[in-house]
Nucleic acid binder design. Structure first.
Lengths: 231, 231
DNA sequence: CCATGTGAAAGCGTTCACAGCG
DNA sequence: CGCTGTGAACGCTTTCACATGG
């Protein structure tokens, strides 16, 4: 369930506000979902709510943590100590949640021996050894797209079991390894697309010059609802 | 369509390899989708394929660009010049696709006047003025969670129309403004969750000590498929 | 009386399968 | 004969509505 971590954060906030109990409605407001959704999601954890009252915040946190396996700590490798790598290594949100970046790797000799966040930078050639020695099971790829696949192959060989790929390319891996991709520019493109839609909605012509006669005859293609909804 | 940007990248790759035409099957392989999916997606753009041959790569690129409104250029503000902000400001992938980070903002006086990437850092108090002067329509929030909502309010007031939020919290905005959230740690949690699942699948007991007698009687709760699929 | 928990219904996105065209 | 374009089937996710229980 991709929403459990979000609930967890909202519960933490609520707890810090001194609340002890929370209704599905209130929790839904905080995470941007509706009450039914929240109840259905939480029902998969078991019945931890009290009718007429709501959910006990601390109990619910425990249950979500248990379900997500967040009692575990993970050792994480960071490959690529460029701008993005620096940011990831210094990002406090990881360690906070049990993800410890314990080593970084880069081909740039000038970076080797320095630190990003708490992690020492090693040359790429040491990857296999360090991964084994430090018991690393996860890796972040923050390299240019051109070398991402090579890095991925090395990581698999080193025995890593999960990879989060920030390079703007698809990497193929053995199916035993779990890969997720984060493409920052794609997020912006999506925003740009909605922006574009809104302008079109307001009656503006599409600016792009293009195939003059090729305008499709009917069917507003991609926007299913012709309502002035923005996103 | 969230996959169009991905297709675009794959097409660019194919083009650089000297290909002129591509089948839905081949394109599907490159983006990790199946052929039917690709064809259905592309059919929303109109009929730009040739039966028996495939799709003309350049034509398809043009059509996707048109659909996404990518002929446009966007001026982007970066709020928060900390680690993540630095990385975002220096990230080449944005400008490459028409998103120009033209100004950064931070409350830290020591950062004001310096640059992140191509953007000068301004004090937060100047946000309204600079947004208007530089014609900024998008913003990246890369601040601590605690101030994210305040920043969001200021951005709305300044007239920004789209926001990408990297702070680990939900921000509420007027519905005319489009917000997307990127939570880096959530991605790792998801990986950690799958890792956890795989261990449970292998027959290991859940490590967390907890409510002793509360083990639900039946129904493997969250994993719909009891197959040894990893992710 | 209020809020949970849950079947039943609705909505979306994906996949299948094949007709149709170059 | 190959590959597109698309209606129909399928499965998953979300929403609705209400019975149940503190």
């Amino acid at each position: 369930m991709r929403r459990l971590p979000v609930y967890l954060r909202a519960l933490l906030d609520a707890h810090n506000e001194g609340l002890v109990t929370i209704s599905s409605d209130e929790l839904g407001n905080r995470v941007g979902a509706n009450a039914a959704q929240v109840r259905k999601d939480l029902s998969y954890l078991g019945s931890y709510g009290t009718r007429g009252i709501g959910y006990d915040i601390e109990l619910l946190q425990q249950q979500i943590n248990r379900q997500l396996g967040l009692d575990k700590q993970f050792n994480v490798a960071l490959v690529g100590a460029g701008n993005l790598g620096q940011a990831l290594g210094n990002y406090g949100g990881f360690a906070e949640r049990g993800f410890h970046v314990v080593a970084a790797f880069d081909t740039d000799q000038r970076k080797v021996g320095h630190k990003v966040g708490a992690a020492e930078v090693f040359p790429l050639s040491e990857l296999g050894r360090v991964v084994r020695e430090k018991n690393i099971t996860m890796a972040l790829i923050a390299t240019p797209a051109s070398v991402a696949q090579d890095i991925a192959d090395r990581l698999v060989e080193a025995g890593v079991s999960s990879v989060l790929n920030f390079a703007p390319t698809i990497v193929n891996m053995s199916p035993e390894v779990c890969v997720r991709k984060v493409d920052l520019a794609v997020e912006l493109q999506i925003l740009g697309y909605y922006d574009h839609l809104r302008e079109v909605d307001r009656g503006g012509a599409v600016a792009a010059g293009g195939a003059g006669s090729a305008a499709p005859s009917e069917a507003p293609p991609m926007a299913p609802a012709p309502t002035p909804r923005s996103c």
